[in-house]
Design a protein around this nucleic acid. Structure first.
Lengths: 354, 354
DNA sequence: AGTTAGCACTCATACGTATGAAGTGCTAAA
DNA sequence: TTTAGCACTTCATACGTATGAGTGCTAACT
């Protein structure tokens, strides 16, 4: 069992290490700590902390740095979020002060704001209602045998795609296809729509179209697009700030991190994993890269939910080095998600029923 | 005036330097050159080349590296494109063997192929007809006071955007607006459309709508989107391969290069500059970063046009380190643009009249 | 029992020196 | 004009040494 002072020392090591990036020695700690004890005493406590695996040395006589176990312990028991400054509030609110035409524009913008604010990489996800249903489907002929398919969901998202149709397909046939889709599929949950697309619908379409398969392919494509979660990433380039030692392996790692955040399914994988073990402080979680994938070693991911009531839940996340100043970041993320939620609620208020 | 042998030496230095990245010494050259002269002779020639400013030393007794002047001279007079290998052909053709629904998909894909092929960063631009005209405009009501605006151009591009409309706007008014646009603007060049949007059209709309400004904003937005050139970038991450020394300034430079290629107007600026001074070999040009912007120091940009006859011209480009193996890259780019042109022509053949 | 001063020990870093390799310029001969 | 030979320069590497930050341990102190 660690003593109070030892906990204080661990906390201070983590704070100083986030600040300086350098290993922390006993004398430095002596000056920094609020309590007045000699460096020898601190050394003794540090020895205990090291025995228990919370901190480690780079070599036999260097200062200590927090271990992964140390960070984990800190995050689970020690961290105290710092309240965001009035300046932070101001910046956030000012940045959201625009007129947006689409929900996703706000979410996209929020990733930029958050990354600017923190100088880390931000990832945001729009609100998601549990049972999104299909509320509308349109086919708009564009001439020259091209058609735009538009799909609207109850969550307010709109997906569209242009595709080319065989010249044999007449506009009457298309009309019928639209009517069939609207009569049979609108109002159903997207998952249900997808499954009916496999059986049932093809047969019906058969009666009116000579070759419904091309049509079905497109419809399925747009549907998949609509069902997929859209992540927005801001401050990609900030990842370059943490190429400290700049070895070749670091660059390789960086590449795989970039590949990860540019692929929405691996991002989904990263962010959606087990929201089960919630932290006491509502729903902000910190996961150390080492606990996730190998390619995220030395990175750390802070995720926070935001709640829009009937309009579902969304998520914002921050990706940065393991040695982030967590108290500030958690505090900041906490107000950020609230401001984002306010802004989104505001949007729904102006354009209801999406 | 340089002698034949001196030119040969310059050429070989550039070749070897592209290969190894190391400064080249007289002995190395002696072994590599097709002619048999002693290292002392080569040293004498190198002294001349250095005096003339074509090569330079890192320090008083290192091998030589090409100077910018040396590269410029090489590119203007010495470089001989290497024919692409059958393997290259195969890879390119295989990669294009897909069914595409949109023209832009092909162009997008081509950037990926080219970057994979070269391990540099590729930038591609779709074909551009000189006088693109507006061929269609649609407004599709999506319910809940939202509308999707769709704009089709004679170049085959389709741009769309969702926007929200004031509740006061009735569907009859919208119908009218569509008709007005289609009656007055379809068939005109995009530039003309933009200018009429400023005067003329607003007055006409006034008669049917209470507040046409919101509508006009949107129309202008989509129009701008359609008029803007869409660049596709492939192999962004390849830029990370050339962080040789990995100093802080390099990272800063890298950031500004990334910012440049992610901003389509600065890209346009980069690629569209003065196509006047064409190289003899048709229309492949190489520009050294140092000749362009400061942030592109040590980079080099190879651009090549492709020609689709009546369907306009497009462009592919390759961004890599100044020490690229130019002969291979130019040869490769030459066949690549032809294959791309074939593929695009093929597309137009299947879906004509775009 | 906990805390502290003191001291020997370790390791990274910086620095000066020696050495060898790579490369050059120059000279004199072919 | 070309070449062989040689003196010279610079750099990278290795090595020894000094320095400083930091540690662990012991013995004394409270």
């Amino acid at each position: 069992m660690l003593t109070k002072r030892q906990l204080l020392i661990l906390k201070e090591i983590i704070r100083l290490f986030a600040d300086t990036g350098q290993p922390i020695g006993s004398k430095t700690l002596m000056k920094a700590l609020p309590i007045h004890v000699s460096s020898a005493t601190i050394r003794n406590d540090m020895a205990v902390l090291e025995e228990e695996g919370y901190i480690e040395k780079m070599h036999s006589s260097s200062g200590r740095i927090p271990s992964m176990k140390g960070y984990r312990f800190y995050l689970d028991h020690l961290v105290e979020p710092t309240a965001a400054t009035p300046r932070d509030y101001e910046v956030i609110q000012k940045s959201f002060q625009q007129h947006y035409h689409k929900l996703d524009e706000i979410v996209d913008q929020s990733a930029k704001i958050l990354s600017d604010l923190t100088s880390y990489t931000a990832i945001t996800l729009g609100p998601e209602v549990k049972d999104t249903t299909l509320t509308g489907f349109r086919l708009v002929p564009l001439g020259d045998y091209r058609v735009m398919a538009i799909l609207v969901t109850s969550a307010g998202t709109v997906e569209s795609q242009v595709f080319s149709i065989p010249q044999s397909l007449t506009s009457e046939e298309l009309e019928k296809a639209i009517r069939i889709v609207n009569d049979n599929l609108v109002g159903l949950p997207l998952t249900e729509v997808a499954s009916r697309l496999k059986d049932g619908v093809p047969q019906v379409l058969m009666q009116y179209m000579t070759s419904p398969s091309g049509f079905l392919d497109i419809f399925e494509d747009v549907l998949k697009q609509a069902a997929q979660e859209h992540y927005y990433v801001g401050g990609r380039l900030n990842l370059l700030n943490y190429l400290a030692d700049k070895k070749d392996e670091d660059i390789d790692q960086l590449k795989s991190v970039y590949e990860m955040i540019d692929q929405s399914d691996s991002l989904a994988n990263l962010l959606n994993v087990s929201t089960q073990d919630q932290l006491p402080n509502s729903s902000i979680r910190v996961r150390l890269g080492d606990e996730m994938s190998d390619s995220l070693k030395n990175f750390s991911l802070i995720t926070a939910n935001y709640d829009l009531g009937e309009h579902g839940q969304g998520m914002v996340a921050l990706l940065g080095p393991t040695s982030m100043p967590y108290s500030r970041m958690i505090g900041l993320l906490d107000v950020f998600r609230e401001e984002l939620a306010k802004r989104l609620t505001d949007y729904y208020f102006h354009y209801p029923n999406h």
